[in-house]
Simulated scan of single mutants.
Amino acid sequence: MTDAYSPIPELNLLKAFVDATNEGFTHWGGLTTYGYNAFFKDPELIERLLPFADADYQGSLFALWRFDDQSDLAAVPIVLLGHEGGIHLIARDLREFFRFLGSLDCPIACDWQYVFYEEDEEAEEPAAREEYLAWLDEQFGLFPADDPDDVIEAAKAEFQERFDAWMFTRFLS
Score class of each variant (00 low, 15 high):
160 Q>E: 14
51 P>M: 13
81 L>D: 04
40 F>Y: 15
121 E>T: 01
134 A>C: 05
42 D>E: 15
119 E>W: 08
117 Y>R: 03
71 S>W: 13
75 A>S: 15
57 Y>H: 14
156 K>D: 08
154 A>L: 12
95 R>K: 13
59 G>F: 15
77 P>M: 07
67 F>V: 02
132 Y>A: 06
105 D>K: 07
113 Q>H: 10
76 V>P: 03
125 E>G: 00
133 L>A: 00
79 V>P: 09
55 A>G: 11
137 D>K: 13
146 D>M: 07
79 V>H: 07
138 E>I: 05
88 H>I: 04
85 G>P: 09
127 A>V: 07
71 S>R: 15
75 A>E: 14
46 I>D: 08
130 E>C: 00
78 I>W: 07
65 W>F: 12
103 S>Q: 08
59 G>S: 13
123 A>H: 09
75 A>P: 05
44 E>A: 12
121 E>H: 10
46 I>F: 09
119 E>A: 08
120 D>G: 00
74 A>N: 13
68 D>V: 05
93 D>A: 00
70 Q>R: 14
47 E>T: 06
108 I>G: 02
157 A>F: 12
45 L>P: 04
87 I>G: 02
91 A>T: 03
96 E>H: 06
80 L>Q: 01
69 D>A: 09
76 V>K: 06
105 D>C: 04
60 S>W: 15
40 F>G: 00
100 F>N: 00
150 D>E: 12
86 G>R: 03
59 G>M: 14
126 P>Y: 13
147 D>I: 09
60 S>G: 15
79 V>C: 12
68 D>E: 11
83 H>Q: 09
123 A>R: 15
89 L>C: 03
95 R>H: 13
120 D>I: 06
138 E>W: 07
49 L>H: 06
114 Y>T: 07
137 D>C: 02
152 I>P: 01
151 V>E: 03
101 L>I: 01
143 F>P: 00
105 D>W: 04
114 Y>C: 01
148 P>S: 08
104 L>Q: 03
58 Q>H: 13
159 F>W: 15
114 Y>L: 08
141 G>T: 11
91 A>W: 05
157 A>I: 00
118 E>I: 12
113 Q>S: 11
76 V>N: 03
47 E>L: 11
105 D>L: 01
139 Q>H: 11
159 F>D: 06
45 L>Q: 12
118 E>N: 12
94 L>T: 00
46 I>R: 14
96 E>Y: 08
154 A>R: 10
157 A>V: 00
152 I>Y: 05
68 D>L: 08
77 P>H: 09
61 L>Y: 06
70 Q>A: 11
112 W>L: 08
86 G>Y: 09
143 F>W: 07
41 K>D: 11
122 E>M: 09
135 W>N: 01
64 L>R: 02
41 K>G: 07
68 D>P: 04
145 A>F: 08
70 Q>M: 06
107 P>I: 01
51 P>R: 14
115 V>N: 02
129 R>L: 14
45 L>I: 08
67 F>K: 12
128 A>D: 04
85 G>E: 10
79 V>N: 03
112 W>Y: 12
136 L>D: 02
133 L>Q: 05
92 R>Q: 13
69 D>L: 04
